[in-house]
């Protein structure tokens, strides 16, 4: 990674932190748990890195580490989104029927 590439990556990092901060500050306490488990599912984005490692690194070690990482990240992604959906399905107002 060259210095230019590093600086671009850092810019992306800083801006994304800002966007995350501004976006999440206004989430009401009622939704704090779904926010946490939903954002947790997003952190499973490392699945993309795991796929790259599992699919391109030469050697058995790379393949094994890759497959472990893909499996762990997939649990995080699939489990995270499903459980969040399950929770959000239960939230309803007093004037509406349960979905």
């Amino acid at each position: 990674m060259s210095i230019e590439e590093l600086l671009i990556a850092l810019a992306v990092f800083v801006l994304a932190i800002f966007v995350g901060y501004l976006t999440i500050t206004r989430v009401p306490p009622t939704l704090h748990t779904p926010l946490m488990s939903g954002s947790n599912a997003i952190s499973g984005i490392v699945i993309v890195g795991a796929i790259i490692v599992a699919g391109s690194v030469g050697g058995l070690l790379g393949a094994i580490l890759g497959v472990v990482a893909v499996a762990l990240a997939t649990i995080n992604v699939v489990g995270g989104y499903l459980v969040t959906d399950r929770m959000l399905r239960m939230f309803h107002r007093s004037d509406e029927e349960r979905r």
């Binding site: 990674m1 590439e5 994304a16 976006t23 954002s39």
Partner: peptide, 19 residues
């Protein structure tokens, strides 16, 4: 994301980190 120079990981990871 920095390790494998992948912007997707940097963006999504930072959103969660901030949250």
């Amino acid at each position: 994301g920095f390790v494998i120079d992948n912007p997707m990981l940097i963006i999504a990871g930072s959103l969660v980190g901030a949250s």
